[in-house]
Amino acid sequence: MDTDKSLQRLVLEELDYEPSIDAAEIGVAVTDGVVTLSGHVSNYAQKLAAAEAALRIEGVKAVVQDITVRLSGDEKVSDEEIGKRAVAALEWHSTLPTHRIHVTVEHGVVRLTGDLDWQCHKREAGHAVEVLKGVVAVINAIRVNPAHRMASVPEVRREIEAALKRSTDLDASHIVVAASDGKISLYGKVRAAFERDAAEIAAWSVPGVINVENRVEIQP
């Protein structure tokens, strides 16, 4: 399809433009708006950046990550050292209750477990270790167990819609919100994947939320 070829070209251009990525060994294929990234990069941060770059392109519905991380000699770090750096990186964030986060490392794969009250803290913990030297993957298995019950459905809907309207990345008029017993469902249509992600982040920002089901569709 011509649209897929156009998206492929735009994604390749975005990867080349992004200074944090060495795109020389990254391949891009597009089928019905779904982008598949292949090839290899020298660290995990570049792998994540590549996916984020592809999602910034309007019309991209989803990204399939098939990129592998091949650490160069100067990027290799022992699991013990990665573990120490991961703990230090988490402790550097004053808002994180690090005593509730557990870190394990095996062959460069960092696994985070534990229980936190906020989804934003779970994301923050993941971001803290993703950029560490020697990391080849991060498994964020932290559970989110809110300390407070979610507000009533009308209040939740108002809070989410207000958060969506504050976002510069999203037209909230096309998003429908349903909420019940700590679970939120999002429906509607947006133009790009990053807008769908913005809607989900806004939903997770509501106190008491334990699950978000994002059914927002991408319609260029």
Rank of each mutant, 00 (worst) to 15 (best):
V30M: 11
E25N: 15
A49G: 10
V69W: 08
H40Y: 04
V28G: 08
Y17P: 00
K76N: 01
E25K: 14
A23F: 04
D22A: 09
V69D: 11
A45T: 01
E14Q: 15
S72Q: 12
V34M: 12
A54I: 07
Y17N: 11
D22Q: 14
V35P: 01
G27V: 10
T68P: 04
A29L: 11
E25G: 01
Y17S: 10
V41W: 02
V28N: 06
A53E: 08
D74I: 08
L37Y: 04
V35I: 10
Q65G: 08
V64N: 14
L37E: 05
S38L: 02
L37I: 03
G73A: 13
V41D: 03
A62F: 09
P19V: 06
I26T: 08
K76Q: 14
A62K: 13
E75K: 06
G39H: 01
A54Q: 07
V69P: 06
T68F: 10
T31P: 00
E52A: 13
V35E: 04
V69Q: 09
H40P: 00
A23V: 05
T68E: 15
D22K: 10
V41N: 01
E75C: 01
R70P: 00
A24W: 02
R56D: 15
Y44C: 02
E52N: 13
L55H: 13
T36A: 13
E18W: 03
A54D: 07
L71E: 12
Y17W: 15
K76F: 04
N43W: 08
A29C: 04
T31G: 06
A51E: 15
A29K: 11
V60K: 05
K76I: 14
D32A: 14
E13H: 06
E58K: 15
I67K: 09
